[in-house]
Amino acid sequence: MKTKIFILPLLFVLFLSGCREQTFKKTKFLINSPCEITIIDANSYKAKKALKESFNEIEKVDKLCGYGLDSKVSEINLNAGKQPITVNNELFKIIEESIRIGDLTEGAFDITVGPLVSLWGFDTDKPSLPLKNKIISVLPLVNYKNIKLDKEKLTVYLAKPGMKIDLGGIAQGYAVKMASKKLKEYGIKKALINISGDIMVIGEALENNPWKIGVQHPRKQNELLTILEYKDKSIVTSGDYEKYFFSNGVRYHHIFVPQTGYPAKGTISTTIITDDPMLADALSTAIFVLGAKKGMAIVNKIRNTEAIIISETNDGTIITVSSELEKTNLKFNY
């Protein structure tokens, strides 16, 4: 009897402690980037299992979209102009979605920029300014409309020899999407996935607060441009301040205008806030290329989508925000 009297309060205490929300956080280096997942949940076992499984999803995407010689993406590129390559349903859908976003953004998002990325050396440690005639010579290889998909046979064919697809502008968003799907399958209601700045928040943070997401200042390392507060959203930023080099005082970065072969001018940072992390990832690149005016016109057409575009002009730095975001009176550190 004494033992029962002792055990009951103990069980009660254990029950109460089990109900308290805890934060579980883990970081891994995948897709060439630090990937961090934060889960807030009362069930330690469930949270740890969900963490593990969602990282497995990111690893799968890493293998699927990677550039190793044995990857499907490499096989598609090596067979450009030769033959269609059969891919799995997942990779087919990523390429299909990339083409759809290419259409949506009037060709500003184009996964066939691979030859340009290689020519400029942004896939190496030492990018450099290529000769103009070399840039012109690879431009015919850059056009997503030359990707031929066969839905029945699940094949991908690059119509011109030398074409190369580069999924760098969408793979991280897709990885975030797959990781979030896995977390939701495990019944996780509060989480944050951050793959190298591509962020998705699920539900709310602790104590029913919205998640606070800082936007990296494009010109001041370790400073934030602004802080956004969201729940159930994807927030992705593209900028010219991480992968770049200077030549004769001009900054050359890695986000190309597919039609000219040169890095986009004017925009220095674009942040997209929308529901789908894959769309957010691709749109942030496309809107960067299109610039504030054309870019914002497209953003306004897409449901539940907001943007912050920072441009450098002759009149100084201009911050353009989409209409709904403007109503929140965001403060900017610029």
Binding site: T27, F29, N32, S33, P34, E36, T38, D125, G168, Q172, L192, N194, S196, G197, D198, I199, V201, A205, W211, K212, I213, G214, V215, Q216, P218, N222, L224, I227, I235, V236, T237, S238, G239, D240, Y241, E242, K243, S269, T271
Partner: peptide
Amino acid sequence: AASRDIPIVDGVTGATPSSKK
């Protein structure tokens, strides 16, 4: 370090860093 030292927010969105840490 895996992430930037800005402790005031839950996450920071920014351009993808170059592939090396």
